[in-house]
Design a protein around this nucleic acid. Structure first.
Lengths: 323, 323
DNA sequence: CTGAAAGCGCTTACAG
DNA sequence: CTGAAAGCGCTTACAG
């Protein structure tokens, strides 16, 4: 038997007699033979690498997204190369360049906001690419996410239902996903006739508990504080809850507080934090699966998958003003 | 000029005229030429990959360790392959096997606790390996960390100084680092003549805020509750602080609470949480640097680097019983 | 279904 | 300091 036959048997290529396949695979296992990925990549002009670009690892949201991606890819036989962009377009561009040098078979990126040059790099690389966390119906685009705007709308609507009219929105980082949530909030309040731009607090710093605490203090010390606050991320809302405690501000009686993403600690807060559970695990799994199909040249019917989110109502917004 | 000369110029190998080097690098930049890592790996029998094994990504501690590692390695021109073991020795073994298939140039692992087979794989691979977060003076071992036991001792000593005699220890996950902290706690309390095994609460589940809350409830509802509690990780202590609030247990007056690692939220807690800041960022950077030296065949004088930690005293242990 | 030939894009090792 | 030759360990593309 020639080396090529062995090669084919190992790769599970059809066109090899089952008996031979078994013999080869048995021998490989016995000898602990593992094909050299470098030689494979060189000869076949494709690696088993998938490059993934995410903004941060310090937001639990992306950690869960990533774990899910990695699990799915690993099962399909791919290695994940992780690049953390820190929400910096230049850094993303450079990371992508480095990752592309490895001739990855696929690419997973977060959202659609990036430099023109990065877009060009992706397109000209010819590497299949799936976008995560946001959706777009543009043709040729592959994506798995959910409607950030509708989700933002849902949170605002919940606060409105609780009886609040003056509802503040606190955004941090100001990446496109946060801005879409803000847009959903605006759409909702405008519809209810109670939108007031003075209630929109947008801060470019990364979201954090400390920033949330700081924002709550600022917002509540104004002349006419809002009845409810929608924080763009749970860490901000958690920090706000703790600051409220320090200041003796009663939640939700004095001010209702809602977050976004439903991160691990939120159910533990005092009071427990109302939030919107985003399907990041599902996004990661579905995006990775779609990419695997693309990499294998299989047809992908649904090129844009929109997943469901879930409003999780807890005591930080309910109790007092309900009904 | 021949291709080999260009190859040498690009790699910054000496033995090429500076003029040529400049000419080649200029041309490469102009043409956007990037050497194929697969071809490089095949010809040179070494990749620019470094495999990193960490237990979890959902503990901020490891995220910071990893970010630091990745930053250092990237600067030195290496790609990081991340494997998350979930504290599972079988999973670690399998991940290592997959990573070794990529012929990494170096290996970074967490601690010393692993299966015999994994140890054998590492040794027989011949790939330089640096251990992180714990230290060992065994010969041939490369490691960067700090003394988990001394750090545990320091926390217990602080609680003792606060006037407490009945000091509980709560451990979760029960990996070797937690057990070393427990040992430090024991050593300290034994020295003070107040060690009581009944005050040691060891739970195999992963540490979390919810578990911390649960443990506090259990511990404080006993007949003779402790005056202080040392939680093995800050997420546990944070959960405990919130549970104390729910139950109207005053901290630190009724019970002092200390955590470990000084994670981001701890300074935001009510009251702010006393903790021990572990040098994970420094560990990651130093371990990666040591590995880079090993991979480049450069001598490493100090094969075991022990870094400093810092006790961060906040209101959860001080105020009432001080002095 | 199986095989002999060629080559993927680099670097190593040996000359000069 | 520079170069011609060989080869890294696979797979592709072409025959049979």
């Amino acid at each position: 038997m020639s080396p090529i036959t062995a090669s084919r048997a190992l790769r599970g290529e059809r066109a090899v007699t089952p008996v031979l396949v078994e013999r080869v695979q048995g021998a490989a296992k016995r000898l602990g033979y593992v094909p050299d990925p470098a030689a494979r990549a060189l000869a076949s002009r494709r690696s088993n690498h998938v490059a993934v670009l995410i903004p941060l690892l310090s937001n639990q949201l992306f950690v869960e997204l990533l774990e899910s991606v990695q699990r799915t890819l690993r099962t399909a036989g791919f290695q994940t190369l992780i690049g953390v962009t820190h929400y910096d377009q230049d850094e993303e561009e450079q990371l992508l360049g480095e990752q592309l040098a490895h001739r990855p078979s696929g690419l997973l990126v977060t959202g659609f906001e990036r430099s023109e040059e990065t877009r060009r790099l992706i397109a000209s690389s010819g590497v299949p690419c799936v976008h995560m966390m946001e959706t777009s119906r543009a043709s040729g685009v592959h994506c798995v996410g959910f409607s950030q705007q509708d989700a933002g709308h849902a949170v605002a609507a919940h606060l409105l239902e609780g009886g609040a009219r003056r509802i503040a929105f606190v955004g941090a980082q100001l990446d496109s996903r946060v801005m879409k949530r803000a847009e959903g909030y605006r759409r909702c309040l405008r519809g209810a006739g109670c939108y007031d731009p003075a209630l929109e607090w947008l801060h470019p710093a990364p979201s954090s508990m400390a920033l949330g605490a700081d924002m709550l203090a600022r917002i509540m010390s104004g002349p006419q504080p809002p009845q409810a606050i929608f924080f763009c991320n749970d860490d901000m809302a958690q920090g706000a809850l703790l600051e409220a405690m320090r200041r003796g501000i009663r939640v939700p009686e004095q001010v209702a507080i809602a977050g976004f993403n439903d991160l691990p600690g939120s159910s533990q807060m005092v009071p427990p934090l109302t939030s919107l559970r985003t399907p990041r695990g599902e996004v990661g799994a579905a995006a990775a699966s779609m990419l695997v199909a693309l990499m294998r040249g299989r047809p992908v019917q649904d090129t844009c998958i929109e997943l469901d989110y879930e409003l999780v109502v807890r005591a930080s917004t309910s109790g007092a003003r309900t009904g």
